[in-house]
Design a protein around this nucleic acid. Structure first.
Length: 552
RNA sequence: GCACCCGUAGCUCAGCUGGAUAGAGCGUUGGCUUGCGGAGCCAAAGGUCGUGAGUUCGAAUCUCGCCGGGUGUACCA
């Protein structure tokens, strides 16, 4: 519908002024019609003529069967009203398959084995999943992947503390940790290891040596020594814990890229490109000279010959490229590594420009709890993923006096998703579960309510081609859905969906307040609208991976 | 020091490829009320869009300076 009108405007411009233009259609205030365009204002500048006069001429010559009338307003806007019939027809529009045939990779969450999942992981898991959904709904073949450090200093710190706790390298002692305790038990060990690393020289030396031993496990394919048994068992515990978490959230990864896999790839690639002059030696390390591009210079291989995070990331990116040859790769991380990522990508651009061109790095801010409540674990101020979910459950318990996982999860997800990604998020549990206001549960309830209406009335054949004012407003709003999805896909910004769904629910509630549906003489058309409304709510929430129950 | 991000109503945020009176929610104040799920609806109050310039017919939106906050800046991730 939208493109049809855009074409009609483009034709009129061509005929009248012999100018090729791609008109931009916006959805204005309802009083200004269904669509509006400012082409006349743009043309006015180009042609040096009064935009209002241009608008008048254009307005008279835009021809499309879908249009009921056009009007010139303000400095030269052309406002366009669709016929009721075509507005109704637009309810059946499908989401544009703008990414059909494309392969997309979405990498998000990226937790480190042996460590606890914090609020940032929860956030990127939720948003990443929604973004992957957007790519999927636009027709792309989407691969969800995850990255994490199963080797490195943090693992060595954990391993040191684990061995202390077990009274030596006694893998059999691990059996004493029950399965439900494992995740907490591991994160405790990391905290202990991290503490001694800072305070105790002997322990630090021991940890450094453990770090090497962990890398050696991979080189020697050791799965059977006592040390190896401890490592592999605990590593698996971590992955079990992650998978359980993702299952709870309703997201699923096709593949994990552990650092143990990407490190050798990165090392190899960086060494190859060192010969070609992309990277260079400096103070015994291998660096990329970012300063030539107004970026930082960063170390990719340290002076001991070990790959840094930079090289591991090169390995990761190359592995994804080899595995998928993607048209689009989306990486979602915190915004603290934005400068870092620019350097890594700039270096790769020197030898795989197409890969970098197809890569999009999206970043988010910190997740904080409203009211400044310190949910600090014993070390530092990390807000854990579970703390946040617990806070939602507690808040929900308080208002509804019962727990409902679909509602709590919907509340958290929506609270994260409704905000444009980029800046810090202040999460307010009470507000998120609240049944009034712009919240997930509000929309879930709105959907359940619509379903309840539909359950009471049979949908008939709706033949009406004219609409009453409130019906028209609702229809107009529902018909915006596919355009909003297009925009969200285009920008990879799920919050557009949230904003829209909330406005839609408000529009519906406004309609429903004054207009009877069941047992009204306009029942058939109204039921059709309620059905479309419920479908859009369900589909929209679905794009956000939020459940839309029929009853609450 | 330099670089990047952020600064819109009391609070939390939309709006940012420049366009018509800057919009929501929460909170505050007032109204609707035996309802097809009132978990709703209507209304009011509340804004120098951090600040000062510039570009433009037109700036919350683009450019520059300044102020405030955050992050990053060579062998951590």
């Amino acid at each position: 519908m939208k493109t049809e009108i855009e074409q009609a405007i483009a034709r009129a411009c061509q005929d009248l002024f012999d100018i090729k233009i791609e008109p931009v259609l916006t959805r204005p205030d309802e009083q200004f019609g269904d669509y509006a365009t400012n082409v006349a204002l743009q043309l006015g500048q180009k042609l040096g003529q009064n935009p209002r006069i241009i608008a008048e001429k254009l307005s008279a010559s835009i021809k499309s069967p879908a249009i009921k009338k056009t009007e010139v307003a303000g400095p030269g806007f052309i406002n366009i009203w669709l016929s009721d019939e075509s507005l109704l027809k637009s309810l059946d529009q499908k989401i544009a398959q703008s990414l059909k045939g494309q392969v997309a990779v979405a990498e998000y969450s990226d937790p480190n084995p042996f460590k606890v999942l914090h609020a940032g992981h929860l956030y990127t898991s939720v948003v990443g999943d929604a973004i992957a959904n957007l790519l999927e709904t636009a027709g792309a073949e989407v691969h969800r992947v995850n990255f994490g450090g199963d080797v490195g200093l943090h693992v060595a710190k954990s391993m040191w503390a684990i061995i202390q706790k077990l009274g030596g390298e006694n893998p059999n002692e691990l059996a004493k940790v029950s399965s439900i305790e494992r995740a907490d038990w591991l994160s405790q060990r990391y905290v202990e290891g991290n503490d001694v690393y800072e305070d105790n020289d002997d322990a630090r030396r021991a940890i450094v040596s453990i770090n090497k031993r962990v890398y050696d496990l991979f080189d020697s394919h050791d799965k059977t020594s006592d040390f190896a048994k401890i490592y592999w068992t605990c590593r698996q515990w971590s992955y079990d814990y992650f998978n359980e978490f993702y299952e709870q959230l309703g997201t699923k990864f096709e593949k994990y890229y552990p650092e143990s896999e990407t490190a050798p790839i990165g090392l190899k690639v960086v060494k190859q490109q060192l010969k070609r002059g992309v990277y260079k030696q400096s103070d015994g390390a291998v660096v990329f000279d970012g300063e030539r591009y107004d970026l930082h210079t960063r170390v990719f291989i340290n002076s001991e010959g070990l790959p840094t995070y930079e090289a591991k990331d090169v390995g990761l990116i190359m592995a994804k490229w080899q595995d998928y040859h993607f048209d689009k790769s989306v990486v979602i991380t915190g915004n603290d590594i934005v400068e870092y990522m620019k350097v890594v990508l700039k270096s790769i651009e020197q030898f795989e420009p197409e890969l970098v061109q197809n890569t999009i790095h999206l970043t988010h801010g910190m997740i904080k709890l409203a009211g400044g409540t310190k949910m600090s674990s014993r070390k530092g101020n990390v807000l854990k993923a579970q703390d946040l979910l617990d806070a939602a459950a507690k808040a929900n318990q308080k208002v509804r006096e019962q727990s409902d996982e679909a509602v709590e999860l919907g509340a958290v997800k929506y609270a994260f998703l409704k905000q444009r990604m980029g800046a810090d998020i202040i999460y307010d549990p009470d507000e998120s579960v609240s049944l009034q206001g712009n919240s997930g549960p509000y929309l879930q309830y709105a959907h359940a309510r619509a379903c309840s209406i539909l359950a009471k009335a049979k949908a008939g054949e709706a033949k009406a081609t004219d609409l009453q004012a409130d019906e028209r407003s609702l229809t107009r709003k529902i018909s915006e859905f596919t355009e909003v999805v297009d925009k969200a896909v285009d920008e990879l910004m799920p919050h557009h969906i949230c904003t829209y769904l909330y406005e839609l629910a408000q529009t519906f509630n406004h309609f429903y307040e004054k207009n009877r549906v069941i047992d009204d003489k306009r029942q058939t058309i109204r039921i059709k609208l309620v059905k479309s409304y419920a479908d859009v709510l369900k589909n929209g929430l679905g794009l956000l991976s939020i459940n839309a129950p029929e009853k609450m």
